[in-house]
Design a protein around this nucleic acid. Structure first.
Lengths: 131, 131
DNA sequence: AGTGGCGTTCACGTCGGCGGCAAGGTCTAG
DNA sequence: CTAGACCTTGCCGCCGACGTGAACGCCACT
């Protein structure tokens, strides 16, 4: 399979696949004419990469998963390094959630304060509704 | 007050203040020698910018607030445009929270699945603890 | 032989918010 | 007079994940 077909089947651009190769994530065999050649296992690797990126991992962070796959394991998450990345990412997400939650509360407080300031002493309680 | 003093008092770098000026966020008067000159209202403006950026707004998004302040309003959030930015940001934060929550659940599911795979049929229930 | 549709490498552009450096001007204290 | 502490403009660098375009090669079909 050439790069165009893999790109099509994986739902990414050929440029992205070349980028993965530059990072050493997706090494490609070459034909005599220089064309990259891929197999089904490469499709699986790209699918793994995209799934993980969809979960917020950077390309670098997907490396243990891809290498785990290429090492012959059934799942990219079968290796200790991958598990470690999962744990670390989960912690990061929890931190982000906490921070975002605090930010949300503060935003809401500021918004309500500004609204109170702009609508001093509403004449009727019914006017508290927002458009 | 010159740029160094404002930077010091506002807790930002002079470079950042020049950057704000490039964006038109913080126009500075000039002395005869070309030095930028700031007043107390500029300190308030920078404080507003930093507070909003701390809530996740981009510099562009702080513009309505800063302009509102410069228009003489007591608070940067006193103007309709600022309120709109608050509302929009709140919606974005809510969206991020929802997405992050889903990502967190998926991460946890993947992690647990991988752990189950690596520790098939634990001999004792006590071994479920994690280091 | 030409056309079109693949592929290749190289290298710069994007977005945000500055950091950092160079080359020079300005002011103040000793 | 000079050191040094400030200021100025200008421009490149950074991070990540590619997009985009140039300039070219390869191959199949007509």
């Amino acid at each position: 399979m050439r790069i165009g077909e893999l790109a099509e089947r994986a739902g990414v651009s050929p440029r992205a696949l070349r980028h993965y190769e530059e990072l050493g994530l997706l090494p490609a065999r070459r034909r005599a004419n220089g064309y990259r050649t891929y197999g089904e296992e490469d499709l699986r690797a790209v699918a793994e990469i995209r799934a993980l990126v969809g979960l917020g991992l950077s390309l670098e962070e997907t490396r243990p998963f891809v290498e785990c796959l290429r090492a012959g394991h059934p799942s990219g998450a079968s290796c200790a390094d991958s598990i470690a990345v999962y744990r670390q990412k989960l912690a990061e997400v929890d931190a982000s959630l906490a921070r975002l939650g605090a930010v949300r509360a503060e935003l809401e407080a500021q918004l309500h304060a500004a609204l109170r300031e702009r609508a001093p002493v509403p004449r009727c309680e019914l006017t508290l509704e927002e458009p």
